[in-house]
Design a protein around this nucleic acid. Structure first.
Lengths: 121, 121
DNA sequence: GCGAAACGATTACATCTGTAATCACGAACT
DNA sequence: AGTTCGTGATTACAGATGTAATCGTTTCGC
Protein backbone atom coordinates (compact mmCIF):
# COMPACT_ATOMS: atom_id res chain seq x y z
CA UNK A 1 0.00 0.00 0.00
CA UNK A 2 1.28 3.42 -0.90
CA UNK A 3 2.20 5.72 1.90
CA UNK A 4 0.11 8.79 2.46
CA UNK A 5 0.92 12.05 4.18
CA UNK A 6 -0.76 13.55 7.20
CA UNK A 7 -3.04 15.86 5.28
CA UNK A 8 -4.00 13.03 2.99
CA UNK A 9 -4.73 10.93 6.04
CA UNK A 10 -7.11 13.61 7.27
CA UNK A 11 -9.06 13.24 4.05
CA UNK A 12 -9.14 9.48 4.44
CA UNK A 13 -10.49 9.88 7.96
CA UNK A 14 -13.41 11.81 6.59
CA UNK A 15 -14.18 9.08 4.12
CA UNK A 16 -13.68 6.28 6.60
CA UNK A 17 -16.25 8.01 8.73
CA UNK A 18 -18.77 8.34 5.93
CA UNK A 19 -18.69 7.25 2.34
CA UNK A 20 -19.29 7.72 -0.45
CA UNK A 21 -19.03 11.50 -0.48
CA UNK A 22 -18.64 14.17 -3.08
CA UNK A 23 -15.61 16.43 -3.03
CA UNK A 24 -17.72 19.22 -1.61
CA UNK A 25 -18.95 17.00 1.19
CA UNK A 26 -15.44 15.98 2.05
CA UNK A 27 -14.48 19.64 2.22
CA UNK A 28 -17.37 20.34 4.57
CA UNK A 29 -16.40 17.56 6.92
CA UNK A 30 -12.68 18.17 6.90
CA UNK A 31 -11.12 19.21 10.21
CA UNK A 32 -11.91 22.86 10.74
CA UNK A 33 -8.42 23.72 11.93
CA UNK A 34 -7.06 22.86 8.50
CA UNK A 35 -9.00 25.64 6.84
CA UNK A 36 -8.79 23.93 3.49
CA UNK A 37 -9.90 25.51 0.28
CA UNK A 38 -11.95 23.41 -2.09
CA UNK A 39 -8.93 23.37 -4.40
CA UNK A 40 -6.81 21.76 -1.74
CA UNK A 41 -9.37 19.08 -1.01
CA UNK A 42 -9.60 18.29 -4.70
CA UNK A 43 -5.85 17.97 -4.98
CA UNK A 44 -5.86 15.55 -2.07
CA UNK A 45 -8.63 13.48 -3.57
CA UNK A 46 -6.81 13.36 -6.88
CA UNK A 47 -3.58 12.19 -5.30
CA UNK A 48 -5.32 9.61 -3.16
CA UNK A 49 -6.94 8.24 -6.30
CA UNK A 50 -3.56 7.98 -7.99
CA UNK A 51 -2.20 6.20 -4.95
CA UNK A 52 -5.01 3.72 -5.18
CA UNK A 53 -6.33 4.22 -1.68
CA UNK A 54 -9.52 5.82 -2.97
CA UNK A 55 -11.94 4.92 -5.72
CA UNK A 56 -14.56 7.06 -7.32
CA UNK A 57 -17.69 6.35 -9.19
CA UNK A 58 -19.52 8.77 -11.42
CA UNK A 59 -22.62 10.39 -10.12
CA UNK A 60 -23.87 12.52 -12.95
CA UNK A 61 -21.28 15.18 -13.54
CA UNK A 62 -19.35 14.64 -10.35
CA UNK A 63 -17.72 11.82 -8.49
CA UNK A 64 -18.51 9.99 -5.34
CA UNK A 65 -15.38 9.04 -3.49
CA UNK A 66 -14.93 6.09 -1.19
CA UNK A 67 -11.95 4.43 0.49
CA UNK A 68 -10.30 1.57 -1.34
CA UNK A 69 -8.47 0.38 1.74
CA UNK A 70 -9.92 -0.17 5.16
CA UNK A 71 -8.90 1.96 8.04
CA UNK A 72 -7.92 -1.20 9.82
CA UNK A 73 -5.53 -2.20 7.09
CA UNK A 74 -4.05 1.23 7.09
CA UNK A 75 -3.59 1.21 10.86
CA UNK A 76 -2.00 -2.20 10.62
CA UNK A 77 0.45 -1.00 8.04
CA UNK A 78 1.48 2.07 9.97
CA UNK A 79 1.69 0.26 13.29
CA UNK A 80 3.87 -2.42 11.84
CA UNK A 81 6.06 0.13 10.18
CA UNK A 82 6.66 1.80 13.51
CA UNK A 83 7.25 -1.44 15.37
CA UNK A 84 9.64 -2.62 12.68
CA UNK A 85 11.53 0.59 12.39
CA UNK A 86 11.87 1.54 16.02
CA UNK A 87 11.49 -1.64 17.99
CA UNK A 88 13.06 -4.28 15.80
CA UNK A 89 9.69 -5.70 14.89
CA UNK A 90 8.90 -6.78 18.43
CA UNK A 91 5.75 -5.54 20.09
CA UNK A 92 6.90 -6.20 23.62
CA UNK A 93 9.56 -3.48 23.64
CA UNK A 94 6.96 -1.03 22.41
CA UNK A 95 4.58 -1.87 25.21
CA UNK A 96 7.43 -1.83 27.68
CA UNK A 97 8.41 1.54 26.42
CA UNK A 98 4.94 2.98 26.68
CA UNK A 99 4.60 1.52 30.15
CA UNK A 100 7.85 3.05 31.29
CA UNK A 101 6.76 6.36 29.92
CA UNK A 102 3.61 6.35 32.00
CA UNK A 103 1.41 6.09 29.01
CA UNK A 104 -0.46 3.24 30.65
CA UNK A 105 -3.11 4.03 33.20
CA UNK A 106 -4.27 1.34 35.63
CA UNK A 107 -7.33 1.07 33.49
CA UNK A 108 -5.24 0.53 30.38
CA UNK A 109 -3.34 -2.18 32.18
CA UNK A 110 -6.53 -3.93 33.19
CA UNK A 111 -7.90 -3.68 29.67
CA UNK A 112 -4.79 -5.01 28.06
CA UNK A 113 -4.59 -7.86 30.54
CA UNK A 114 -8.16 -8.83 29.79
CA UNK A 115 -7.44 -8.63 26.12
CA UNK A 116 -4.39 -10.85 26.38
CA UNK A 117 -6.18 -13.35 28.53
CA UNK A 118 -8.84 -13.65 25.87
CA UNK A 119 -6.18 -14.37 23.30
CA UNK A 120 -4.75 -17.35 25.07
CA UNK A 121 -6.01 -20.72 23.91
CA UNK B 1 11.64 17.94 19.31
CA UNK B 2 11.97 18.38 15.57
CA UNK B 3 10.91 15.56 13.38
CA UNK B 4 13.54 13.68 11.43
CA UNK B 5 13.29 11.61 8.30
CA UNK B 6 14.13 7.98 7.86
CA UNK B 7 17.59 8.52 6.46
CA UNK B 8 18.31 10.99 9.22
CA UNK B 9 17.13 8.41 11.71
CA UNK B 10 19.64 5.94 10.31
CA UNK B 11 22.40 8.42 11.10
CA UNK B 12 21.07 8.88 14.61
CA UNK B 13 21.10 5.13 15.11
CA UNK B 14 24.79 5.07 14.34
CA UNK B 15 25.45 7.75 16.91
CA UNK B 16 23.16 6.21 19.50
CA UNK B 17 25.21 3.09 19.12
CA UNK B 18 28.55 4.83 19.55
CA UNK B 19 29.41 8.45 20.18
CA UNK B 20 31.12 10.74 19.69
CA UNK B 21 32.15 9.99 16.16
CA UNK B 22 33.65 11.93 13.30
CA UNK B 23 31.74 12.31 10.06
CA UNK B 24 34.01 9.73 8.46
CA UNK B 25 33.32 7.26 11.23
CA UNK B 26 29.59 7.75 10.89
CA UNK B 27 29.92 7.06 7.18
CA UNK B 28 31.82 3.86 7.89
CA UNK B 29 29.20 2.59 10.28
CA UNK B 30 26.17 3.59 8.27
CA UNK B 31 23.95 0.75 7.02
CA UNK B 32 25.66 -0.80 4.05
CA UNK B 33 22.49 -1.04 2.01
CA UNK B 34 22.25 2.73 1.95
CA UNK B 35 25.49 3.08 -0.02
CA UNK B 36 25.91 6.62 1.14
CA UNK B 37 28.57 8.92 -0.18
CA UNK B 38 30.50 11.01 2.33
CA UNK B 39 28.71 14.04 0.97
CA UNK B 40 25.37 12.57 1.88
CA UNK B 41 26.46 11.71 5.39
CA UNK B 42 27.71 15.25 5.87
CA UNK B 43 24.45 16.70 4.66
CA UNK B 44 22.59 14.54 7.17
CA UNK B 45 24.88 15.57 10.00
CA UNK B 46 24.44 19.22 9.10
CA UNK B 47 20.66 18.98 9.04
CA UNK B 48 20.55 17.05 12.29
CA UNK B 49 22.65 19.78 13.89
CA UNK B 50 20.24 22.44 12.65
CA UNK B 51 17.34 20.42 14.02
CA UNK B 52 19.04 20.34 17.37
CA UNK B 53 19.11 16.57 17.75
CA UNK B 54 22.90 16.45 17.43
CA UNK B 55 25.70 18.46 18.93
CA UNK B 56 29.28 18.67 17.85
CA UNK B 57 32.47 19.62 19.55
CA UNK B 58 35.65 20.59 17.79
CA UNK B 59 38.44 18.09 17.65
CA UNK B 60 41.26 19.86 15.92
CA UNK B 61 40.10 20.61 12.43
CA UNK B 62 37.07 18.38 12.48
CA UNK B 63 34.06 17.75 14.62
CA UNK B 64 32.97 14.99 16.88
CA UNK B 65 29.25 14.43 16.71
CA UNK B 66 27.03 13.09 19.45
CA UNK B 67 23.30 12.82 19.98
CA UNK B 68 21.57 15.66 21.78
CA UNK B 69 18.44 13.61 22.44
CA UNK B 70 18.29 10.12 23.81
CA UNK B 71 17.05 7.28 21.72
CA UNK B 72 14.49 6.65 24.39
CA UNK B 73 13.11 10.14 24.15
CA UNK B 74 12.94 9.84 20.42
CA UNK B 75 11.13 6.52 20.57
CA UNK B 76 8.73 7.99 23.07
CA UNK B 77 7.97 10.90 20.80
CA UNK B 78 7.36 8.77 17.76
CA UNK B 79 5.32 6.18 19.62
CA UNK B 80 3.13 8.82 21.13
CA UNK B 81 2.70 10.50 17.81
CA UNK B 82 1.45 7.27 16.30
CA UNK B 83 -0.82 6.46 19.22
CA UNK B 84 -2.25 9.97 19.19
CA UNK B 85 -2.72 10.16 15.47
CA UNK B 86 -4.08 6.71 14.77
CA UNK B 87 -5.55 5.47 18.00
CA UNK B 88 -6.93 8.57 19.65
CA UNK B 89 -4.12 8.61 22.17
CA UNK B 90 -5.15 5.31 23.75
CA UNK B 91 -2.63 2.52 23.94
CA UNK B 92 -5.16 -0.23 24.39
CA UNK B 93 -6.57 -0.01 20.88
CA UNK B 94 -3.06 -0.21 19.50
CA UNK B 95 -2.31 -3.38 21.45
CA UNK B 96 -5.71 -4.76 20.53
CA UNK B 97 -4.99 -4.02 16.94
CA UNK B 98 -1.60 -5.67 16.96
CA UNK B 99 -3.07 -8.66 18.75
CA UNK B 100 -5.82 -9.02 16.21
CA UNK B 101 -3.31 -8.84 13.45
CA UNK B 102 -1.36 -11.78 14.79
CA UNK B 103 1.57 -9.71 15.70
CA UNK B 104 1.64 -11.22 19.17
CA UNK B 105 3.18 -14.61 19.71
CA UNK B 106 2.34 -16.60 22.83
CA UNK B 107 5.74 -15.59 24.11
CA UNK B 108 4.95 -11.93 23.50
CA UNK B 109 1.75 -12.34 25.40
CA UNK B 110 3.52 -13.93 28.34
CA UNK B 111 6.14 -11.21 28.35
CA UNK B 112 3.66 -8.42 28.23
CA UNK B 113 1.60 -9.97 30.96
CA UNK B 114 4.65 -10.25 33.19
CA UNK B 115 5.50 -6.69 32.39
CA UNK B 116 2.06 -5.43 33.27
CA UNK B 117 1.95 -7.42 36.46
CA UNK B 118 5.18 -5.78 37.55
CA UNK B 119 3.64 -2.41 36.94
CA UNK B 120 0.79 -2.89 39.31
CA UNK B 121 1.31 -1.52 42.81
C1' DG C 1 -30.01 31.73 -24.55
C1' DC C 2 -26.61 33.55 -21.29
C1' DG C 3 -24.11 34.46 -17.38
C1' DA C 4 -22.86 32.32 -13.11
C1' DA C 5 -21.92 28.47 -10.37
C1' DA C 6 -20.11 23.75 -9.89
C1' DC C 7 -16.72 20.32 -11.05
C1' DG C 8 -12.69 17.84 -12.42
C1' DA C 9 -8.10 18.56 -14.50
C1' DT C 10 -3.95 21.02 -14.94
C1' DT C 11 -0.49 23.87 -13.32
C1' DA C 12 2.02 26.37 -9.61
C1' DC C 13 4.89 26.88 -5.87
C1' DA C 14 7.12 26.51 -1.29
C1' DT C 15 9.01 23.20 1.98
C1' DC C 16 11.03 18.87 3.32
C1' DT C 17 13.73 14.89 2.33
C1' DG C 18 17.19 11.97 0.13
C1' DT C 19 21.15 12.05 -2.42
C1' DA C 20 25.09 14.27 -3.98
C1' DA C 21 28.55 17.65 -6.35
C1' DT C 22 31.23 21.54 -5.63
C1' DC C 23 33.71 25.04 -2.99
C1' DA C 24 37.04 26.86 0.30
C1' DC C 25 40.59 26.04 3.29
C1' DG C 26 43.93 24.16 6.01
C1' DA C 27 46.98 19.96 6.68
C1' DA C 28 49.94 16.50 5.04
C1' DC C 29 52.98 14.50 1.60
C1' DT C 30 56.62 14.74 -1.61
C1' DA D 1 56.68 25.11 -2.25
C1' DG D 2 53.26 22.98 -4.69
C1' DT D 3 49.90 19.44 -4.95
C1' DT D 4 46.79 16.53 -3.14
C1' DC D 5 43.57 15.23 0.51
C1' DG D 6 40.42 15.52 4.40
C1' DT D 7 36.76 18.41 6.20
C1' DG D 8 32.97 21.43 6.88
C1' DA D 9 29.98 24.67 4.16
C1' DT D 10 27.34 25.83 0.26
C1' DT D 11 24.71 24.74 -3.58
C1' DA D 12 22.03 21.49 -6.56
C1' DC D 13 18.35 18.76 -7.82
C1' DA D 14 14.56 15.41 -7.99
C1' DG D 15 10.54 13.58 -5.67
C1' DA D 16 6.96 13.98 -2.09
C1' DT D 17 3.85 16.87 0.36
C1' DG D 18 0.79 20.78 1.64
C1' DT D 19 -1.65 24.41 -0.15
C1' DA D 20 -3.79 26.69 -3.77
C1' DA D 21 -5.00 29.30 -8.39
C1' DT D 22 -6.42 28.73 -12.94
C1' DC D 23 -8.54 26.39 -16.97
C1' DG D 24 -12.18 24.07 -19.51
C1' DT D 25 -16.66 22.24 -19.33
C1' DT D 26 -21.16 21.55 -18.04
C1' DT D 27 -25.24 22.64 -16.03
C1' DC D 28 -28.64 25.61 -13.80
C1' DG D 29 -31.03 29.75 -12.66
C1' DC D 30 -33.14 33.36 -14.84
Amino acid sequence: MERIGEAEFAVMEVLWDAAPLTAAEVAERAPVDRRWSMATVKTMLGRLLVKGVLTHEEDGRRYLYRPAVSRDDYLAQESERLVDRLFGGRVTPLVAHLAQRDRLSPRDIAEIEALLKALKP
